[in-house]
């Protein structure tokens, strides 16, 4: 089933056009990967899926962004949209507070004050993000005392804490070592059962390992979208082939 349906999306930063006529469908309970060289617009597009681009001055967007058939740039509550569509960033960005408070921040934001309920949400989120065993004894310790890989999984737990439907991940492993990267990839494979996941990655092997569908971006346009296996073994476009075989990028 289609979760997101984007058609004729154009995006400008002031005079610079960062996305040109983008059309893509993102399906439920699948991992969709955005690949392409730096500056090709993949991060820009993922940020527009939960309207994080609203924070950037001079950003202008046209086109249709349907989430479950509803236009997310229409008359909706942005905060509720961001509750439904969680995000994990390139660099782990835990808040400078305890591990517990980091995960409880989201539910508290949305009005949950009951102590036992919060405890349950925190535990479930940390378990789902596969970090519970590493931090169950130090929930009151600062999140900044965790390693980079642990911090990133904490950020995933934090994103899961508000029970989103979609999880956006903007190069979530680019700042991590191979072992932490492996853990997060395993986690993504687990999470797609419950969530729809969109991931931006620079690492083509990663895209083949974890994604069901891949979109290849170049200079603000989607050159090719397809099932990951198909796109990597039998690309239809010459540019895609050149990129995935490492001839440029």
């Amino acid at each position: 089933m289609t979760k997101y349906s984007l058609s004729s999306v154009n995006l400008w930063y002031h005079d610079f056009q960062a996305l040109t006529d983008v059309n893509i469908d993102i399906d439920n309970n699948e991992v969709t990967a955005f690949i392409g060289p730096s500056g090709c617009g993949k991060s820009t597009l993922i940020k527009s899926l939960n309207r994080m681009n609203d924070l950037i001055e001079g950003c202008r967007i046209t086109g249709e962004f349907l989430l479950d058939g509803e236009d997310i740039y229409g008359n909706i509550d942005v905060n509720m949209l961001r509750k439904r569509v969680g995000m994990v960033f390139q660099k782990p960005n835990p808040f400078p507070m305890s591990i517990y408070d980091n995960v409880a921040f989201g539910p508290r934001t949305h009005g949950i004050k009951n102590r036992t309920e919060l405890d349950e949400i925190v535990e479930k989120s940390l378990r789902d993000a596969a970090i519970w065993d590493e931090c169950r004894d130090r929930l009151r310790k600062s999140a900044l005392s965790l390693s980079g890989g642990q911090q990133q999984r904490l950020c995933i737990a934090r994103a899961l804490s508000v029970a989103p439907e979609v999880l956006l991940m903007d190069e979530p492993t680019s700042a991590l070592d191979p072992i932490s990267t492996g853990k997060i990839e395993d986690l993504i494979n687990e999470l797609k059962r419950e969530y729809t996941i969109v991931i931006v990655t620079h690492n083509m092997q990663q895209a083949t390992r974890i994604s069901d569908k891949t979109a290849f971006f170049l200079l603000g346009e989607i050159i090719e979208v397809g099932r990951t296996e198909e796109l990597f073994t039998n690309p239809k476009n010459e540019k895609t082939e050149n990129y995935i075989t490492g001839r440029f990028g």
Binding site: N50, M52, L55, N79, M80, L81, R82, K83, G86, M87, F89, K91, N93, P94, F95, P96, M97, F105, G106, T109, H110, C155, R158, A159, S161, V162
Partner: peptide
């Protein structure tokens, strides 16, 4: 205060006021 803190807060559906009050100001 790095913008990544603010982004983290907004991405959880927190509004401006809550972000300033709970994240930016304490930091």
């Amino acid at each position: 205060i790095p913008d990544s803190y603010r982004e983290g807060s907004f991405s959880l559906g927190a509004g401006k006021l809550r972000t300033v009050w709970r994240i930016t100001l304490p930091s």
